[in-house]
Design a protein around this nucleic acid. Structure first.
Lengths: 335, 335
DNA sequence: CTGAAAGCGCTTACAG
DNA sequence: CTGAAAGCGCTTACAG
């Protein structure tokens, strides 16, 4: 049970001053090679590690990044976090995780706490509830305290901060075009997130790619039963040939309804969903999906934050980076 | 852009000493109500928040807990993390997330870094690779530095630390008994994790519940192709009536193979898997599964760590808590 | 009731 | 080349 050794203790053992020890360990040119060697040997013998809290206090930074995640059970966010962690590790930064559970109150609490300077910067995907309320004061508070914020994934909220997201609009534009190029005409869309930013962008892309907006056939609702009814209508009554789903919930519902109604996928109905690979690949039949490259998004978020912290961006001007999605064809879009 | 105000600055503005300000803000009885009031008013006007780094340095603790996660894409761990975060929040503690990606090297790196005292304690699910190597020196290093460790989920490794896990053995014992009670005789098991602790426990429970060990019909392999072949054999040649899967991979494979071989679930084959609710519910047909209550596991892990930190446990003796799993019946076990 | 001082563990400009 | 001193922002025993 070796308790941690400090600079002071090392200094005493070596009969030199604390300053000397500190400098020696930092390879300062001020220190004679001989002393440097003695110091380093003893330090490694005792397995000396500088107390990170003290170092941070001295440097007035924390080496720590706060990440606010709306919903960690969504494997998209889990993978974003993984990308962030990997990138942070390269810079010896720590990630402190906060989960808002899509709640405005919790998100506000988190941001309030973060204004105390616990972290050098914050990465956040704004919760659904906050988007609905359109109350962003807690985010402005962070900026007021000079804590840089990078908004990730859910970016089209008009907030003055650096942003990293995905080409939501283009992804569905392309997917819709893909179906049209294959000669399909009755292309539907299902969404449980039509009320939030990313949902709206996806819908926008879909509509733009149609012959005209009148051709849109959409099932949208935040209420599961309602959504289910609308999707069923699209599939059985409107007899759509292809369906784009903006989110996990609607994609799974559609698969399920097709199964119940004995509509074969992909023979009778093509399906594309905004769901993560883990699930897409393992559904039966497997579901073609939009790959959002979450890990890349995560590592980019960290990079942008670090650039901001390092003063590489002009203050008052904000970065906005968009990652290209990829449409992955699995069984549900076989022609 | 208010930059953070400090005790010193408040003191100057109020024409009192730093000590007085500090005491006033801590409701010390030493301070006159009048001064206390003045101080508090100015503090809240300036939105004073104590610098957490300085407070921690003073208190020689960090208010921070390190969590090592083997694989965050596994939604079980994502939900465990969510439970930890919620519990930590109640105690004003921060969670620093580290992802080992089931890699021994990475896990060792993480533990080495944590010995520097970045965190008050560590929660870890030991990586698969580490379990294979059975090298736990990096964990002992943490204990050497007096950093308490709680092992979660993957607990039967014989390590001297507090533990919180799930009744892996009993869960499969019960599940097997359930099938036998229904009169089934050919009960198989599939596993891609037969080589790690939790896999072994599940297999043990299964075997114990059989009439005799000779009745065991198992498909185990870490190689996907090999495992697939063995499961197919169990299903088509051995004509098992029920299959227990110890993990996500084997469960999904089994579903898929049944689909390809036109074996109907649950009519021709009952299936139970160790997979998470998110996926189980949405498969077609939905898959009966063992609910492990990951959030509860997470919050308990934090509680145990905090009890340890608070000296509520005898040192040298270790807690071991087991959470009861629940068998959730969905479509795949309909009789 | 208030304040000066020491100290948490470190870094670094400055003096010698 | 080495060390004393100041300081990061806070807390708290002690003196007055």
């Amino acid at each position: 049970m070796k308790s941690k050794i400090t600079l002071k203790e090392l200094a005493k053992l070596l009969n030199v001053s604390i300053s000397t020890v500190s400098k020696a360990l930092h390879d300062s040119s001020e220190i004679s090679p001989k002393t440097a060697k003695r110091v380093k040997e003893l330090a490694s013998l005792h397995n000396y590690r500088p107390n990170p809290v003290a170092v941070n206090l001295k440097k007035s930074r924390t080496g720590t990044i706060g990440v606010v995640i709306p919903n960690i059970s969504n494997s998209f966010f889990a993978r974003v976090l993984s990308g962030m962690e990997a990138e942070a590790q390269k810079h010896d930064q720590q990630i402190i995780t906060y989960i808002s559970n899509e709640s405005f109150e919790r998100e506000k609490q988190i941001c309030d706490m973060l204004t105390s300077g616990m972290v050098d910067g914050v990465l956040i995907a704004v919760s659904e509830e906050t988007q609905k309320k359109q109350q962003y004061d807690h985010l402005f508070a962070l900026l007021d305290y000079d804590i840089p914020v990078v908004i990730y994934d859910r970016i089209n909220l008009g907030l003055p901060a650096d942003k990293i997201g995905v080409d939501d609009e283009k992804s569905f534009f392309d997917a819709t075009k893909f179906f049209r190029a294959k000669g399909l005409e009755k292309i539907g869309l299902a969404s449980a997130i039509h009320h939030v930013g990313i949902g709206q962008l996806r819908i926008k892309g879909y509509k733009k790619a149609l012959k005209d907006e009148g051709a849109a056939m959409m099932a949208t609702s935040t209420k599961p039963d309602d959504l289910k009814k609308k999707i069923r209508d699209l599939i059985t009554e409107k007899k759509i040939e292809a369906l784009l789903c903006t989110d996990f919930e609607s994609a799974i519902m559609a698969t399920r309804i097709a199964y119940e109604e004995k509509i074969n996928i992909p023979e009778d109905l093509k399906l594309i969903g905004y769901i993560s690979r883990e699930i897409a690949e393992f559904l039966t039949p497997s579901l073609s999906y939009i790959e959002q490259h979450p890990q890349e998004l995560g590592s980019n978020a960290i990079e942008i934050l670090n650039n901001r912290l390092d003063g590489k961006y002009e203050s008052g001007k904000f970065e906005e980076k968009i990652i290209a999605t990829t449409l992955i064809h699995l069984e549900s879009t076989k022609f």
